[in-house]
Design a protein around this nucleic acid. Sequence first.
DNA 1: CTGTTAGCGCTTTCAA
DNA 2: TTGAAAGCGCTAACAG
Lengths: 341, 341
Amino acid sequence: MPPRRARSERVTLLDVANVLGISSITVSRALREPEKVSEPLRQKILRQVEQMGYVPDLAARALASRHNGIIGVLAPALTNHAYLGIMSGIEERVRDTDFRIQYANTNHDADQEYRQVKLFLSQHPAGILLTGLQDQRVSDLLELAPCPVVQIVDLNLLPSGIAVGINHREAAETATRHLLACGYRRIGLIGGSRDLRAQRRHDGYALVMQEAGLYDPGLVMTEHKQTSMQLGCDLFKRLLETAPDVDAVFCQNDDLALGALFEAQRAGLRVPDDFGICGYNDLDFALCAEPRLTTIRVPRFQMGYRATDLIIRAINDECLPSRVIQLPFDLIQRGSTRPPA
Amino acid sequence: MPPRRARSERVTLLDVANVLGISSITVSRALREPEKVSEPLRQKILRQVEQMGYVPDLAARALASRHNGIIGVLAPALTNHAYLGIMSGIEERVRDTDFRIQYANTNHDADQEYRQVKLFLSQHPAGILLTGLQDQRVSDLLELAPCPVVQIVDLNLLPSGIAVGINHREAAETATRHLLACGYRRIGLIGGSRDLRAQRRHDGYALVMQEAGLYDPGLVMTEHKQTSMQLGCDLFKRLLETAPDVDAVFCQNDDLALGALFEAQRAGLRVPDDFGICGYNDLDFALCAEPRLTTIRVPRFQMGYRATDLIIRAINDECLPSRVIQLPFDLIQRGSTRPPA
DNA sequence: CTGTTAGCGCTTTCAA
DNA sequence: TTGAAAGCGCTAACAG
């Protein structure tokens, strides 16, 4: 721990209490349990608190009581566009509660995930929301966590704790079947396979292609990288070189799909007539691309909202409606695939 | 603060100390100031700590000492793609230090910004990194902060504290001059003006257009909304209706620019021949769009890295190289604008 | 409804 | 190099 820095004299509960000639616990109660303090006194206290600029010390509160009121959210990559909807759902649910949200990145890395979970835990959080790798060490840690933990996961795997998610494998099956129904035959897959959820999408694709007798490993282009449009461009180019007769791609997310779309345009392919593209996530830009992107819609706002709701219920010791919530997905047909036959 | 939840018996410093028959302060020192404990004892302690799974309690540490080792980062919208580079810079700088990062959203809202700053402060953070609105209440709060605060800002305004940034107005001037140099005349502006930095970009545009005698308020389309490709589409459509003779747009960021590009394609405009588009930020997709996007490159990784470096130096009481670091920007000419005459 | 007491787990300060 | 004592600011538990 590095050296010091002058600490400005913080206003404490006691300071406020002294001014009013009452005890600090009464001030504390006025703030946290208003109904336990008489109305006139409460008013006086609140006014004084305001005037002196008192701000509660969360470290002290966390130490003296159960938790600090903060729900920690761990995500592989906070800047992932797909996380936007999840965040909105989370923040919507805590609005008008006394809980607050803080985020950290795990960078798709089990070690970092482990460290960040420990970091949150060591601050006495009210709860933890994890979109994680389902690593064993982390699970062990969470098993003993003194606060509720909810995971946003792929539900094809059996989550041990409380979880919200969709079945990514089934969603990928739906997407692949749609491409087949549109009459495409040499259907490729583009993906960044760093992540379990992405892995399940691959499984769904492979399953359907095998059923159809059309599976060809040469049509699968993945790279262990953070996905991006640029990666979509690169993988698409590689796919086109490897298998020039490819006539469609299922992309593991919309970023990749948009990259593929641009690259297809550069290659002079006409989408959707010569070539079909299906994305995943239904990010906002899927609707404004030209042509608009066929994709799988995932209820991300709901995922964030319901996951946070589960946490809050668990903190409040309510019994949960269920430990695992499976959310639906939808295939959104747009201009980047031909109408199904 | 909601009710309880069984607290699992946390291993404390004292537990470890008791097992070894020493005092807890020695264990504490072995962990934080290794050089102050004899080598053999230190080894024994570290082994025991490991074995008992001791994890320091940051709340207690924060309360007893100066700070909790966490640098809080506040951003308007963490899922903004432009923040990715900044985050990478931040996290790169803290890698291999004992500092950790936690994030929170302010949603471009002064009240939320104020509340989040208070929330971080009440946890005894090691430092705060703010990409904010420069609201007066927040500034007052930070003035008294017991930890270093660094802002990532527009440097055309005079920041009061420590800051890193670029001059957004000048950057916008450069972009607009470039469009003029390409021979475009009826140059519009598309933007979401919620944010100071965005506001400065508007100023730069207006300045240059006025100089050229070409300024027309009818060519400015802004909306107080979070920017997105969809917003780019909408504003572009509106621009085209309002001023059918518009022949170029400067977009306040690349998301908007890409939306505008799609919409231009749908309208049958040929980019860059009939119509020029210039973005802002040089996000990864600017390079893969078709045509590739002319844009302003902002050194986001550097902004994050250097801002964090300033914080860490300030925490360590080093004297700072300077209180304000101005970073350069670059105009990146690509296919969405004609070559300049 | 209000107050007293004790202690959360750690680090600071001072002493040995 | 190690330890003892005190206290950071708050809240739980129990009184009155």
